[in-house]
Design a protein around this nucleic acid. Structure first.
Length: 287
DNA sequence: ACCCAGGCGGGCG
DNA sequence: CGCCCGCATGGG
């Protein structure tokens, strides 16, 4: 039965568990309880919770309509997954990953949050990125709805006015100066919101102007902060998987990998990357 | 104890 | 331009 806090999804086209396990920004800001399968994350409408029951998502929040809209947007629920799966299923490797992680979705995140998280991601691991993110929120996050217990990720202004020492105390390490510099730039010269709706090339070029943002991080922000699906971030996992599966184990330059990806998956490269990354990262533990 | 993690900036040839 | 190197920290 339909209700205003329930979203029906196409059968098999969404998995909250796989999506939460995929190390995207939303998963760094939210709390996921594997027992109940409930994800809770902060928003400007207050805390939002999502739990999956088969092909239904049950959404909780102070403002039900706003919460449902937020979930639809952040989990890209209007993406036509059967069509996307069909388009990117170009070979047995990616088909196998899709079968294994059916319902894994890209998320859409705030551009500044995405920028900050991926600056922190360089030469780092997922567990520690979560740790640092949590410390930054606890220390510099601004209370939402006047509730001190509910904080969102700190604004660019807040982080630019923090001292390098304070950022170091959160465990940011050598990335502290990058984060501070990027925060200063984003709170003065570059309005990240104004990039929304711009084409991939322009967006990436603008992002590359930020301290601590190179080719890979810029693609992550384009993909997960702006929803530009032709972005194809190449990190160690994706590189490893691609060389093993598509290049017969040969070392291949970033340039070559980008050309291969765009030639094969085109405007949906980002979704292909998500499945390659997830398969590579989890597959290495699986053996 | 040792090794590695969703790269990047700077310096050099 | 392309390559190579150092880099802060916490967990396995």
């Amino acid at each position: 039965m339909a209700s205003k806090n329930r979203i029906e999804v196409t059968s098999g086209a969404f998995s909250l568990a796989h999506t939460f396990g995929s190390a995207q920004p939303l998963t760094f800001f939210g709390d996921y309880d594997p027992q109940t399968g409930r994800l809770t994350y902060p928003s400007r409408h207050g805390p939002i919770s999502v739990v999956q029951r088969g092909d239904s998502l049950i959404v909780g929040g102070d403002d039900a309509a706003a919460a449902v809209a937020d979930v639809r947007r952040r989990f890209r629920l209007s993406d036509d997954m059967p069509s996307i799966y069909s388009s990117i299923s170009t070979d047995p490797f990616i088909r196998d990953s899709i079968r294994r992680y059916d319902g894994l979705r890209l998320t859409l995140n705030d551009p500044w949050e995405t920028t900050a998280v991926f600056i922190l991601s360089q030469f780092n691991n997922v567990k520690r990125i979560r740790l640092i993110t949590k410390r930054l929120i606890d220390r510099f996050g601004e209370p939402l709805q006047g509730e001190p217990s509910l904080k969102g990720f700190p604004s660019a202004e807040a982080l630019s006015s923090a001292s390098e020492r304070e950022l170091l105390d959160c465990g940011t390490g050598f990335r502290a100066k990058y984060l501070r510099s990027a925060a200063a730039f984003c709170s003065s010269s570059l309005d990240l919101e104004s990039l929304e709706g711009r084409p991939y090339g322009e967006t990436k070029e603008a992002l590359l102007g930020l301290d601590g943002v190179g080719d890979k991080v810029a693609d992550c922000i384009a993909l997960m902060g702006y929803g530009l699906l032709e972005a194809f971030p190449i990190d160690t996992w994706v590189r490893r998987v691609m060389e093993r599966r598509y290049f017969d184990g040969r070392k291949t330059g970033i340039r070559g990998l980008h050309e291969f990806a765009y030639g094969r998956w085109g405007r949906l490269s980002g979704y292909a990357q998500l499945y390659l990354f997830h398969d590579g990262r989890l597959g290495s533990k699986r053996g």
